[in-house]
Each structure stands twice: as structure tokens, then as C-alpha cells.
Design a protein around this nucleic acid. Structure first.
Lengths: 335, 335
DNA sequence: GTCCGGACTGCAATCGTTGCCACATCCGAG
DNA sequence: CTCGGATGTGGCAACGATTGCAGTCCGGAC
């Protein structure tokens, strides 16, 4: 039958020492005679001893498994973020526990509860609401917010300059002569969207143009009628260019344009916020605001590691710079 | 300062009962007077009690956190797989702990060790080597292999009919008149690659063609010279069509073809195994063998759940069917 | 009045590890 | 010779939850 797992006590008995000594030998703290340590290491190896993390966590009241929650595991943006985090944590011999919350505050809260009950030493998240992060902070668990900031309590964060990125994108369009620029953005309370909207407005204002609210379409995440809304924007407002504020909306917009056989950029230009691989592959390639995604993950992990080292260290919010990559999807305004 | 977390004992004291009763009330097994239960539930809620999973896991010697290891978190195929698994597990009130191993046996083993030490009740993995799965099985932890099978010990699995998918793809090319068909495949010992190679061979054999080994290129995962190898294949063997046995190789091949300004399918045809979104977006769209990815994840999770219910139940290997989606990247042979 | 079973509750042991403490030993300094 | 420190080891009590068992209390049946 299923053999009972090997415990530390088994190893100790086999090597003829007490469990305490075995513990010291294997975890490497406290006095152990070199030969005894060697013997214990060998027996542990021989028996295939695997420490029981629950017991250790219970006793030490903390674990080395960092919780990470992202909005959508299937989105390459978040996948890259997670990859950056994972690599960095691994290097510091922490483990990442990855969860997706589908942009749902409820799922986010459930996930965070799990982290709490597993005594994660810290959490990195792309927050969907403020409540989860606040809960963690209230319980004394350090949180790093990535991509956007929502917590009401203070915590470290890594974001990019959304306003600036959006401004660059829109200025680029304005420079090409566009004046009716549709904005497609997610309907959220996230700082990312707020910042991008802000940038859109700022660019228009700087060019002496008024914002036509009808050109701004806010689409709820996972909304079934997303393409319908986009189609309506095209029909009713006849924009000469579209700025899609995230990669999902960019893809949807692209699909709509293609379905209508509109030529990009002859009939309409398209710019996206957040560069993902397909944008460089389609014909014409999509002009996009690239984010240093992997790097954001790395920085977030570093911030958390720093705080684990020194819980009292000052709060840091890193703002990275986006970069506009001009490609074929943007061109002079159709006359 | 950081408040000590609320324990079950705190809740019990506050509600004027013993910890035992509190435990029964909150976990819902055993006798508890209705009003007492209600009172305990209320106090737990009020104090914001979160059970300590380590303690519970330690005592019960098992947890409800299922381990999942996939080869590459950034690959949409694996992301979809994970999504399918997660959704299904969640519905059964299990949690998923997701890890990526970058196709590295060492990282896989480390991850699996963690699962073992966290007492995961079961593990779902796209195996990178046989050792990790074997280790788990030896320790009595049920394993479900997805996408490919590698374990020497017997375990449940969900795969697709790789040979058949590959055969369809190649037959499609043969039907269009192609005879020199390059095969791009990963250099692994995985059953996926073996199956796809098999299908390639079978299709050629059925058409009375010999396999030219020079047309078969095996590229190591993450190999830096992948594009170089592909370029060499084009230069030296002049295939009229290429069958890329996974989505990464398909993308690399596509990039090479584009860089050389070869027209698809006029100059050369391209078929991919594993349909991912960009394949439907590029011009021309790529003919591909689609896998029911999300469904594979779902089935794997169901298989695991079944075995958790009944550890003695017979072993199941599900083989799903791939589906060839014909698109613009394949055309009549250039004459 | 006794007995019985059902409904409930609490005691105490346990899960596997760690870390504090006490103790043992040995060597060199005073 | 004694003392003190360095070195090394084992005992024991936690960590926080669960659970088998042994009660207690009640109402009703005999």
C-alpha cells in the first residue's frame, strides 16, 4: 500500500540522533558536528526524505511561497508578467503560487484568502479591486501591486506611465492628421484605464481639440457585445483612427475592421496600448505602445523581496516608461 | 503592530465554546447545536477568522490544493490547458497551484518536490521527463499526464491522437501535390513528437513516398539557432511545404519565410500542429491542426477528481481527436 | 425509578518541525 | 585545579487544527 511518508524522526532514528539534531543538520542552522551532519544528509538522501512544508510553515508561522494573482492567465501580457516574477523569485529561492482571477473581485478575494491561510510571506497582484489588497495589508502581509494601483492602504507598486504612453500614441495619430480618434477602453476603475484616458485627453487638448465623448467607448471586460460596440463606433462616429487601450480590445477592433474589409491604414488607422506578438505579425503590423512586461514582473518581485528582508523599509512606487513602436497600421488621414 | 492572526481557539473563546465545537461548527461535520453553530459562524465572521491551512493539512495529512506543472506558462497552448484545469478544479472546490518548468526536468522535479512537501492530493502535469511523475506515483500521489505521456509507472492521461493529426496535415499537403515536405519538430523524447513524426511517415508511406531524413529537422527547445536550422532546411532541401509540429516552431518558420519574402502558399505552403490565435490573423491564415486544448485541461481535472474520489478506480487514458482547419497557407504545389 | 439512546460538548492526543533550554564534554587559561 | 567558553546533543513544548472517545444532559419508554 501507500507507504507512509518519511518524517524527520525517521531520518533521525535511522542515523541514530534526535530529531532536533536532524533538523539542525538539514536546515543548516545551529551546531552539528560535521560528521554527524554528513551522516544525516546521507540518510535523508537515501530514504528520500522530503520535509513536510505544512509542519514547517505551521511552526515557523510563515512560508516561502509567494502568492501571485493576475487578471487573466490566458493574456500574454499577464503571462509575461508572471514569468518575470517567477524567474526572480526562484533566484531568491522562493516559490510562486500563481492564480488567475478573471478580473473578478470575488475570485480575487478567494485567492487572497487562500494565500492568507497558507501564510504566504507576501503577495504580488494586478489588483481587481481594492478589497483584496487591503485585506492583506490589514493582516500584515506585504503586497506589491503591478500594472495598476487600487489599494487604499499604502503598498509598493510597479506601474508604467500610462498617461504618457497614451499621449504618445495619440500625438502620433494627431501628427498624421487625424482628428476624429476613437478611444476603446475597458470599463474599469483601474488606474491603467484612467491614465490612458487622461493621456488621450491631454494629447487632444494640447492639439487644441475638444474631446468628443461619443468617440470614447468603454467596454466591460468579457462583454459579449464588445464587437457590436466597436462596430457601432465605426458606423456612427466615423473615426479616422482608433486607439485601443489594451491588447484584447486591439484584437477585437482589428477583427471588426477586417470583417468589414476596411483597409488599415488607408481607411482607418489603429494603435494599441500593450504590444503583443501578433501585432508584429499581421499585415500591416500594428503600431503599439510597448510595455517592459517581463521587467515589470522582475521589479515587482524585487520590491517584494526587499520588503521581506526589511519590512520597515520605505514605500516604493516604480514608474517605468512605455515606448511607442511605429508600424504600418498608422498612416496619413484619409482625405 | 502586526496583529497575531485569529485562531480557531480565539473564535471559540469569544463564543464561549471549546475549540472542538468551533471546529465542528465551521467545518460542518459532527454534532453542533444549531444556535451554537450560528453563534460560532457569526463570531468567526466578525473576527475575520481565516483557517490556518498548514495546521489543517498537517493534521489531515492531505490538502485540497492540486499541483499543476506545465512546460511553458507563456505558451498559449499551456495557458489554455491550465485554464481548463483551473475552472474544473474550482468547481469541485479544489485550488490549483500552477508552476512552469520551462521544459526542464530539473525545474520539474523541484516543483514536484514542493507539491509533495505541501501534500497535494494529486498532480496534473505535462511531463518533461519520467522521473517527476514516477516520484509522485511512488509516493502514492495520483498523477494525470496531459498532452503527452512519459511516466514509466501507470497513470491516467489525456492526450490527443498526434499521429492522426499529423497524418491529416500531411495528407492535406500531399493532396495538393506536394512531395518534398519539410518536418519541423522538437527534439524531445515526448510522445507528442514521436506521434507526429509517426503520422508524417505514415502519410508519406501511404502515398508511396520515401521519407527523406534530410527533410526532418529536430530543433531543441529554446535553441538559439532554431531559425538558422530552418533557413538551412529551406536552402539545402528546397521543400515545397513545411509541416511545423508545434506552435512555436510554426511561428519561427513563419518568421523565416517572411524575412525571406517567400510568398505563402505560392512559394511554399505551411501547416502547423496546434492552432493558436495568431494563425487565424496573419495573411494568409495558417492551416493548422487544432487541439481541444481547454477541453483537455478539463478532462484531465475530471480524471484526477474521479481518482481522488476513488483511488482504486481503473486507469484511464483519454485520446481526443484533433481537427484540421484548412486555411490560406496551403496551396497547390509550385511548378 | 431506572435505563437507554440521541444530541451535544469538551478533553486530550495527534500531525511533523523547530527552537529554546539544559546538559555534557573538552580544551585552554588563569 | 577550577572555571569559562566553545561545541555539540537531546528533551520538550510549542505551532493551530481535527477527531476519537468519554462524558453530560435530556426526554421518553418500560
Amino acid at each position: 500500500m501507500t507507504a507512509r511518508p518519511i518524517t524527520l524522526a525517521d531520518v533521525a532514528r535511522e542515523a541514530g540522533t534526535s530529531p532536533s539534531t536532524a533538523s539542525r543538520a538539514l536546515s543548516g542552522r545551529g551546531y552539528v558536528a560535521p560528521d554527524v551532519r554528513k551522516r544525516l544528509l546521507a540518510t535523508a538522501e537515501r530514504l528520500g526524505y522530503i520535509p513536510n512544508l505544512s509542519a514547517r510553515t505551521l511552526k515557523q508561522r510563515t512560508s516561502r511561497v509567494v502568492g501571485v494573482v493576475v487578471s487573466d492567465l490566458g493574456n500574454q501580457f499577464y503571462a509575461a508578467l508572471a514569468a518575470g516574477i517567477e524567474t526572480t523569485l526562484r533566484a531568491a529561492s522562493y516559490q510562486m503560487l500563481l492564480l488567475g482571477d478573471n478580473s473578478d473581485a470575488g475570485q480575487e478575494l478567494t485567492g487572497v484568502r487562500t494565500f492568507l491561510s497558507m501564510r504566504a510571506p507576501g503577495v504580488i497582484m494586478t489588483p481587481a479591486s481594492n478589497s483584496a489588497a487591503d485585506l492583506l495589508v490589514a493582516r500584515g502581509v506585504p503586497v506589491v501591486e503591478v500594472d495598476r494601483r487600487l489599494a487604499t492602504s499604502t503598498c509598493d507598486a510597479v506601474v508604467i506611465d500610462n498617461e504618457r504612453g497614451a499621449r504618445q500614441a495619440v500625438e502620433h495619430l494627431l501628427g498624421l492628421g487625424h482628428e476624429r480618434i476613437g478611444l476603446l477602453m475597458a470599463k474599469t476603475t483601474w488606474t491603467t484605464d484612467a491614465g490612458r484616458l487622461q493621456g488621450y485627453r491631454a494629447a487632444l487638448a494640447a492639439a487644441g481639440l475638444k474631446v468628443d465623448r461619443k468617440l470614447v467607448v468603454k467596454v466591460a471586460t468579457h462583454a459579449a457585445d464588445a464587437t457590436g460596440r466597436i462596430a457601432a463606433l465605426l458606423d456612427e462616429q466615423r473615426p479616422t483612427a482608433i486607439f485601443a487601450a489594451n491588447n484584447v480590445l486591439a484584437e477585437q477592433a482589428w477583427q471588426v475592421l477586417r470583417a468589414r474589409r476596411l483597409s488599415i491604414p488607408r481607411d482607418i488607422s489603429l494603435v494599441a496600448f500593450d504590444d503583443v506578438p501578433w501585432m508584429g505579425m499581421v499585415q500591416p503590423a500594428i503600431t503599439a505602445v510597448a510595455q517592459p512586461t517581463f521587467e515589470m514582473g522582475r521589479r515587482a518581485a524585487l520590491l517584494l523581496l526587499r520588503r521581506l528582508e526589511d519590512p520597515t523599509c520605505g514605500r516604493t512606487v516604480e514608474v517605468l516608461e512605455p515606448r511607442l513602436i511605429t508600424r504600418g497600421s498608422t498612416g496619413g488621414r484619409k482625405r
